[in-house]
Lab assay of single mutants.
Amino acid sequence: KYLVLALYDYQEKSPREVTMKKGDILTLLNSTNKDWWKVEVNGRQGFVPAAYVKYL
């Protein structure tokens, strides 16, 4: 498993997404889509914009 760092705040806009705050450390679950990565944060799984996170 990889960890990624939230570069920006992101507010979920659909039930498939998750909210994150700048500085959050997220567990990367799937990065096959170049635009949306599946992550786990605070016990929830969902998608965030790939451009908003970077590998640690």
Rank of each mutant, 00 (worst) to 15 (best):
F47C: 12
W36V: 03
A51I: 11
L26Q: 00
E40F: 06
G43E: 07
P15V: 11
Y10R: 02
Y2W: 14
M20T: 03
K34I: 09
F47R: 03
R16H: 15
F47W: 15
K13F: 05
L7I: 13
D9C: 04
Y10Q: 01
Q11Y: 14
Y2K: 14
P49L: 03
R16L: 14
V53W: 01
W36R: 03
L26C: 11
S31F: 10
V48C: 03
A51L: 11
L3M: 11
V48L: 03
D24F: 04
Y8F: 14
V41S: 12
N33R: 09
G46R: 02
I25G: 01
A51E: 13
R44M: 09
Y10C: 02
K34G: 09
E17W: 03
K38H: 13
W36G: 00
T32F: 10
Y10S: 01
E17N: 05
T27V: 15
G43D: 08
V39S: 00
L26A: 09
T19F: 04
G23M: 03
A51N: 13
G46V: 04
Q11E: 15
W36F: 08
K34T: 11
L26M: 14
V4S: 03
D24W: 09
Q45P: 07
K22D: 03
T32K: 11
K22S: 07
P49A: 02
T27F: 12
I25S: 03
L5S: 06
K34L: 10
K38L: 15
Y8R: 11
I25Y: 07
G46Y: 02
F47E: 04
S14T: 14
L3Y: 14
G43I: 02
S31T: 13
Y2N: 13
L26P: 01
I25T: 08
K22V: 08
V39R: 00
N33Y: 08
V41F: 14
G46I: 03
Y55A: 14
L56E: 07
Y52A: 14
S31P: 08
L3R: 09
M20N: 00
V4D: 00
L7G: 04
V53R: 00
D35T: 13
L29W: 05
A51R: 14
W37M: 05
E17F: 06
Y10D: 01
V41M: 12
G46L: 04
E40D: 11
L5C: 09
V4C: 12
N30G: 08
E12V: 06
V53A: 02
R16Q: 15
A51T: 11
W36Q: 03
K38P: 01
V18R: 02
Y8A: 13
E12S: 15
D24C: 06
N33V: 05
D24Q: 13
R44A: 07
S31R: 12
Q11K: 12
N30K: 06
Q11W: 12
K54E: 14
Y8D: 09
L7R: 06
V48K: 00
E17I: 04
A50M: 05
D35E: 12
T27E: 11
M20P: 01
N30P: 04
D9L: 02
E40H: 06
A50C: 06
L3K: 11
D24A: 07
L28E: 00
K1W: 10
L29P: 00
A6N: 01
L26G: 09
G46F: 05
S14C: 10
V4Y: 11
A6R: 02
L7A: 06
T32P: 04
Q11H: 14
